[in-house]
């Protein structure tokens, strides 16, 4: 039983690796900073959560499991703040996003 759960965990970890790669592909494919942040946030949320879940299943009930949960909570708290700081810094230093509707006013022109 524990063996089977461990294997499920391993499969989840591999799925997380797949998601990370998808995120990296997105970072390379997308046109500007802001759309690339969207792609990277797949790695931050989906991949990190799946990875933690997989490791939790592999760890079973142990002190390591509690630490994994705490690590996951901190990833969820810090990664959006970091992404926001990045986007804010890009916007503040004059990077204008590529928009679908070019007539849409951006902040400084409005």
């Amino acid at each position: 039983m524990a063996e089977a759960i461990g294997w499920i965990g391993a499969v989840l970890v591999i799925a997380a690796v797949g998601l990370s790669i998808a995120g990296a592909v997105g970072v390379l494919r997308f046109p500007d900073v802001y759309t690339r942040i969207h792609a990277a946030s797949i790695t931050d949320t989906g991949a990190a959560s799946l990875m933690t879940l997989g490791l939790l299943l592999m760890a079973g009930f142990s002190p390591a499991a509690i630490k994994l949960c705490i690590v996951w909570v901190f990833i969820m708290l810090t990664s959006p703040a970091a992404a926001h700081a990045l986007a804010g810094a890009a916007f503040g230093s004059g990077h204008r996003p590529v928009l679908a509707d070019p007539r849409q006013p951006s902040e400084d022109e409005a």
Binding site: Y34, I37, S41, I42, T45, G46, A83, A87
Partner: peptide, 11 residues
């Protein structure tokens, strides 16, 4: 920001 596809630029 956490939901992929949307990011807060300025708050």
């Amino acid at each position: 920001t956490l939901t992929p596809g949307t990011v807060t630029i300025e708050a």
